[in-house]
């Protein structure tokens, strides 16, 4: 376990892909969850955007944002602790986490504006 933790240290280039993998996972969850929700329990169109579906999707998105934001901060701090290769890795990872955070925020915006199943 400790080996894994050492390997997954925030200066490891694996973090280049973790942020966007989380973004993808979020994306698949929201897209897939939405499709299933519309199939299984489509809300009445009269309800507009104030439906359980929108609320659940929004919660998942906010959780993803919180996680990604925390990782952004972590990587950013780590980049200041190191120099050279490790700093480079942490800096690029921080950028990618930041992008993923905004990616989730941005792609989640329609959830507050569009009724789910029309």
């Amino acid at each position: 376990m400790t080996i894994v933790m050492q390997r997954l240290h925030l200066t490891h280039p694996l973090h280049f892909v973790i942020g966007l993998t989380l973004w993808s996972a979020w994306f698949v969850t929201v897209y897939g969850g939405h499709a299933v929700a519309c199939e299984v329990m489509p809300p009445d169109p009269e309800q507009g955007v104030f439906t359980l579906v929108n609320a659940l999707l929004l919660m998942v998105s906010l959780a993803a944002v919180a996680l990604l934001a925390a990782l952004t901060v972590g990587c950013y701090r780590m980049s200041k602790h190191h120099a050279g290769r490790l700093s480079f890795n942490a800096r690029v990872s921080a950028g990618l986490y930041l992008f993923s955070t905004f990616g989730v925020l941005f792609a989640a915006m329609p959830i507050i504006g569009i009724p789910p199943c029309l």
Binding site: F27, V30, Y31, H34, A35, C38, A107, P110, I111, I114, P115, P116, C117, L118
Partner: peptide
């Protein structure tokens, strides 16, 4: 559904 389209948009 348009919401799904919006994610991809």
């Amino acid at each position: 559904p348009q919401l799904a389209q919006a994610f991809f948009s």
